[in-house]
């Protein structure tokens, strides 16, 4: 295998580094966090960053660094699972639309057009308002409203792939539709989807943090970067650290996935 730096340029590696860094934080959260993220300390309310609390404390005296570390888990989990759901829906519908075409394909494409008309954030808010803002609901709703791009990509790829010789060969030896779609067409159509998934994770993390910031996402006391920022807004001016650190965490994470996605795109699609 080639050394990494010959395959990827500096920015992509930087993106990969950011992505890896936060994944490690999320996995080892209990070891990295210096305090229990829910531990209230009324004697140390809103203390600025110091040696005992490197990111300071929040309005209940909880250690901000520990809350941020556990928040990483929530934000990444929502991002991954939401995009996983979107990928499953998008790949399935896109493959069906591409492979069968005709009226099934037309119906799916119209459905995609209709879904694209809704301001996504409105749709997400409306559904969350009707359900409850639990983490599971948020992941499902973000996933269910962001699969359309992936479906279009898969469909376009499969339409061009299904007339290729290796698919005719496969059919000649008696492979069924399901086998052709899942074993041959989808794996060969995955390159642009991989790019879309990488950007999608960044998007889902942004949506989750926006929802949590508005108070309709991950509910306190469970920490998420968005709801820490929301608490930070309440004490604006009295606790700059509560606005600075979660904002930077969201910004760097989203930047990391975008850089990685751009790098994958340049490698795979050119």
């Amino acid at each position: 295998m080639l050394p990494l730096h010959t395959v990827m340029n500096k920015l992509t590696l930087f993106g990969l580094g950011i992505v890896g860094f936060f994944i490690i934080i999320a996995i080892f959260a209990p070891m990295i966090a210096s305090y229990n993220p829910g531990q209230i300390d009324i004697e140390n309310i809103l203390t600025p960053p110091s040696s005992s609390h490197i990111f300071g404390t929040d309005s209940l005296g909880r250690d901000l660094f520990s809350r941020m570390v556990y928040g990483t888990r929530i934000s990444l989990m929502v991002g991954f699972i939401a995009v996983g759901i979107a990928a499953i829906i998008g790949i399935a519908l896109g493959a069906i639309a591409g492979y069968y075409g005709k009226w099934i394909g037309a119906v799916i494409m119209r459905f995609i057009d209709i879904m694209l008309c809704f301001p996504t954030f409105f749709l997400i808010l409306a559904v969350i308002a009707l359900l409850e803002p639990s983490i599971i609901n948020i992941m499902i709703v973000i996933g269910a409203t962001s699969w359309m791009g992936i479906a279009r990509l898969i469909r376009a790829e499969i339409i061009s792939l299904k007339e290729r010789d290796f698919i005719y060969a496969e059919r000649a030896i008696g492979a069924g539709d399901l086998r052709i779609i899942t074993r041959h067409l989808i794996p060969n159509a995955m390159a642009p989807v991989l790019v879309s998934i990488t950007f999608g994770i960044a998007g889902a993390i942004l949506v989750e943090s926006s929802l949590s910031f508005l108070g309709i996402g991950v509910q306190p006391p469970t920490p998420s970067w968005g709801n820490i920022l929301s608490e930070g807004k309440a004490v604006m001016g009295a606790g700059w650290w509560m606005m600075l650190f979660p904002g930077i965490a969201i910004f760097i994470t989203v930047l990391g996935y975008n850089l990685l996605g751009e790098g994958i795109r340049e490698k795979l699609l050119r």
Binding site: L206, S209, L214, L229, I250, L255, L259
Partner: peptide, 23 residues
Amino acid sequence: VFIGFAVPTFWLSLILMDFIGVR
């Protein structure tokens, strides 16, 4: 451009509010 894509709108709003508006 990459920075523009990654900055959360609500965070940008809060920072602008805090500095340009309040401070």
